[in-house]
Design a protein around this nucleic acid. Structure first.
Lengths: 212, 212
DNA sequence: TATTGTGAACCGGTTCACAGCG
DNA sequence: CGCTGTGAACCGGTTCACAATA
């Protein structure tokens, strides 16, 4: 429904609006949001219009209802249950991340294939093995999983998660994984980001614009 | 020069081709690459054409030269010097990442504003403070930095990096940062990825396609 | 013949001007 | 009068058919 590109920006707008909310601002405008979000006022209005008639012509957007509607549009209306698959360094860092509850996510479980890790604790969780993953997924009422295993193990781990009933995967491994069409995957790939950065740094754009 | 969307896919193609290389495959085709990279053969050919005349009509692409040319196009022709700004959990996890040298990146320095952390070691590095950052950046011949500080500190840390002569920033903080036009920023934002995932999981697409 | 490279059609997203409305 | 919502023009990227060529 919402275009992918718009979806990405809506996340940013929500952050901006939440920031305004904590600053005590009551009313804002497409221009003000655009300034903080690195976008144009045109684009902000068009993007926000995907979520309904959120503003008031002539006076702008009320911060609190706007935040509420953005959260609703993005699906942030309940606490989502998340698991960590793969308790390496990254998995541990995520387990210790203190801010999930601020964002309506709850870390409920951590899994690792290595028997030596099973039973140890990471952050608030006890690491479980992969035996009867489906039962554990059901018990924890898991919605989504962080996939933080080595690239070579990513496909197998993803298959196991899908078979166990997970509906969404946030893939941190630097590799493409195949999943059935009804499962969603989003990737967080810092090596890809680093490589894109390398391209840009190695090909500096001609500077025809003088700095303002 | 290369469109952003293409650039992202080229990174994936390079991974695929590197994989083929280690498998000992000598020749491949746009179709084979597409299969592994989750793309169409059309798109692979169009994307690869941005990097020059890389294939041979009638017989496909030779793996080794293709890998070489992709690396060249992406700027992976030398070792890039990278620093870590912010030695929290994520910064530490990155410092311990064992595979950078495989990808022609070298971690050269780590910085933190907290005096208590200065002098401690993370991975192979001794944490430095921010006094005379410019001299340190020059001494280590740094090209780019991982920005792994809390969101509230991200803009200030980015400003310091830019002032010190860094040319590219890989931003891990969940916030928009402002930099001069000649500095490149790429973002790795797992909270944004998680939120996009939430949207898709909460709005499952109507299933008109039967699984094959 | 098999497969790439590419001009052209197509499509979706961005930009914009202005209509709509408080 | 000011600012939003939106239809329409515009633009860039994707898809495709086919020409080029080993």
């Amino acid at each position: 429904m919402i275009p992918t590109a718009t979806l990405g920006r809506l996340v940013t707008y929500l952050r901006v609006v939440a920031e305004l909310e904590t600053e005590g601002v009551l009313t804002t405008s497409s221009e003000a949001i655009a300034g903080r979000a690195h976008a144009t006022a045109f684009q902000v209005r068009k993007d926000l219009a995907y979520c309904g008639r959120l503003g008031t012509r002539g006076s702008g957007y009320q911060v609190a209802p706007l935040a509420r509607e953005l959260r609703r549009a993005l699906g942030l209306t309940r606490v989502w249950h998340v698991a960590i698959m793969g308790v390496g360094r990254l998995g541990q860092a995520l387990a210790d991340y203190p801010n999930f509850d601020r964002y309506d996510f709850a870390l409920r479980a951590a899994y690792d294939a290595d028997p030596a890790k099973v039973g140890s604790t990471v952050g608030p969780l006890v690491v479980e093995g992969l035996d009867d993953l489906a039962a554990s997924v059901a018990r924890h009422a898991l919605d989504m999983a962080f996939l933080t295993v080595p690239a070579a193990a990513a496909q197998g781990a993803a298959d196991a998660l899908v078979a166990a009933g997970i509906r969404g995967i946030l893939n941190f491994a630097p590799t493409v994984i195949e999943v059935p069409a009804h499962i969603r995957v989003e990737s967080v790939d810092f090596l890809a980001g680093l490589t894109r950065l390398t391209y840009y740094v190695g090909n500096p754009p001609a500077e025809h614009d003088a700095p303002s």
